[in-house]
């Protein structure tokens, strides 16, 4: 791990209105740095703002206050057009593999979509070669390319989602609860795959999860969130061996391990 900051967020705030009078801070004054090559895990209960934070980092929603910079350049104030080259370098793997793939597109087209959108390859032959390389990377067979998403199991769909996310050779991969909808064995397969790809491609990873045992397997640093704010951010070994914040201790005590 080198020490250059890949993505940096400072004083992010995002408010959602509940009704006319009341509103709630989904993200309340959050600052964090993600270093190149590390896996940072974002942990917390549902409703703690971890997904909102990841969407702000990915420029899917705009924050009310605060800035996000990628490789030292501020990107939160850029227009959509100016943002494009940055977007190709940060990609996302979603929670529900079934609803994140277009049911009317063949697997080949799903994986090719980012390649076309970011105009990475000039010729069709080059692109086909890249698609084959990607299917091989996520351990899918070549004959799956001409099939449709409904023909695959949950784990295979998640592999397709990962292939699409790494297609444009991103630097940052954001995994939003990417394994929580999967069975234990398939979950272990996907976790192994993510870890291998991360080492192979030198990816930086933001891993969002509510499962502390999964996080301990994959993360280098852990960021615990509660009510829109960070309550503890520390290296993984420290979080698990000597948690400081009360809430971290409470979360750890709630995990049942066989």
């Amino acid at each position: 791990m080198d020490n250059s900051v890949l993505l940096s967020a400072s004083h992010l705030k995002k408010k959602y209105r509940i009704d006319r009078k009341n509103s709630i801070f989904a993200v309340n004054d959050v600052s964090l740095d993600i270093f190149t090559g590390e896996t940072l895990a974002l942990v917390g209960e549902s409703g703690c703002g971890k997904s909102t934070l990841s969407k702000i980092l990915m420029q899917i929603i705009k924050p009310d206050e605060g800035t996000v910079s990628f490789e030292g350049k501020e990107i939160s104030s850029l227009s959509e057009r100016a943002l494009r080259p940055y977007i190709s370098r940060m990609q996302m793997v979603f929670q529900d593999p079934a609803s994140s793939l277009d049911p009317r597109m063949k697997i080949r087209d799903i994986i090719a979509e980012p390649l076309k959108a970011f105009k990475i390859y000039g010729t069709q032959a080059e692109m086909n070669e890249r698609i084959l390389e990607l299917t091989d990377m996520v351990e899918l067979k070549e004959d799956c390319l001409n099939r449709y998403p409904h023909e695959f199991s949950g784990g295979q769909k998640q592999r397709i989602g990962i292939a699409r996310a790494i297609a444009a050779s991103p630097k940052l991969l954001v995994c939003d609860e990417s394994v929580s909808a999967l069975d234990v064995c398939v979950q272990a397969q996907i976790l192994n795959l993510l870890k291998r790809l991360k080492n192979q491609l030198g990816l930086t990873c933001l891993f969002i999860s509510h499962d502390l045992s999964v996080v301990s397997f994959i993360a280098d640093r852990v960021c615990v969130m509660k009510n829109g704010a960070i309550c503890e951010l520390a290296p993984a070994e420290k979080i698990y061996s000597a948690p400081e914040h009360e809430y971290t201790k409470y979360l750890l005590a709630s995990v049942y391990c066989p």
Partner: peptide
């Protein structure tokens, strides 16, 4: 045994999880 080794633990995880191949 495969089911049990597929579950990551809170500490002392191996580099890669030992899992049951296939579906």
């Amino acid at each position: 045994r495969g089911l049990l080794s597929s579950i990551p633990k809170l500490s002392g995880n191996p580099e890669y999880l030992k899992t049951i191949p296939g579906n």
